[in-house]
Computed example of a mutant assay.
Amino acid sequence: MIYGIGTDICDIRRIRASLEKHGERFAQKVLSDNELNTYRVRSERWPERGVRYVATRFSAKEAFSKAIGMGMRMPMTWRLCEVAKLPSGQPTIVLHGVLKEWFEAKGLTAHVSVSDESDYATSYVVVETHTA
């Protein structure tokens, strides 16, 4: 049964401006440790890939927070929600700490889709419940 659905569209130009203004501090606020490592590797090779990476993660986390119905308030935080990739390349939500405990206690599962094109990144998240 569907618990919640979230969607978000993010202007990549806004993310670029935040990174230019605040440097890596902005990325450190939004990204988990694993995501931060990926961001650094992508940025070294091609800075625009790093910007787009942050934008898609920002968008996916916003969509996830909407799907669980709480926005950005505890236990939902930027760094406790991670967007990783399965070996197939499919994006997946990985949770940490109190957010993971809350999510698992509710018997929830998340599905995420992310995309970016030109000036925008977009994400969709469907959260299912497996309890009656």
Rank of each mutant, 00 (worst) to 15 (best):
I93V: 15
T7H: 04
F58P: 01
K61E: 07
E117M: 10
T109D: 08
A121H: 02
S123Y: 03
A105S: 14
G107Q: 02
E117T: 12
A67S: 14
L95W: 05
V94N: 09
H130L: 09
S115A: 13
L36Q: 09
Y3Q: 10
G89M: 04
G6K: 00
P87K: 10
D11C: 13
S59I: 03
S118N: 14
S65V: 06
H22P: 05
L19W: 04
T122H: 05
R14V: 08
L36M: 14
A132F: 01
V41R: 12
A27D: 04
V98Q: 10
R73W: 08
G23T: 06
A105W: 00
V98D: 12
R14L: 11
R73V: 14
A105V: 00
S18L: 14
A67Q: 01
W102P: 05
V125R: 02
P87C: 14
T38G: 07
V30W: 01
K61G: 07
I12F: 06
V125N: 00
D119Q: 13
L95D: 02
S123E: 01
M70T: 15
M70Y: 12
H130Q: 09
D116A: 03
R25A: 12
L108I: 07
L31N: 01
W102A: 12
R79P: 07
R49N: 15
K21N: 05
G97Y: 03
A63H: 03
R52C: 15
E82R: 07
K21P: 02
I15Q: 00
S32D: 04
V127R: 01
E44I: 10
E62M: 10
Y39M: 11
Q28S: 13
G71I: 12
R45S: 13
A132R: 11
M1I: 08
S32T: 11
T131S: 09
S115R: 00
L108W: 06
W102C: 06
V83F: 03
R57F: 02
H22D: 13
A55W: 03
L108H: 06
A132C: 06
S65C: 11
D8R: 00
K106M: 06
P47G: 13
Y53K: 04
E48W: 10
Y120E: 09
G97W: 01
S43Y: 09
V98E: 11
V83E: 03
R73I: 13
Y53S: 15
Y120T: 08
G97I: 06
R16A: 15
L95E: 04
R25H: 08
S88N: 13
N34G: 14
R45V: 12
V51T: 14
S113Y: 05
L31E: 06
S18Q: 12
S123G: 04
V112L: 03
I93Q: 01
V83H: 01
S88K: 07
E48Q: 15
E20N: 15
H111R: 10
E35D: 11
R14N: 14
W102H: 12
D116N: 11
N34T: 11
W102I: 03
E35M: 07
E117Y: 10
S115L: 00
P87W: 05
V126K: 02
I68N: 01
K106T: 00
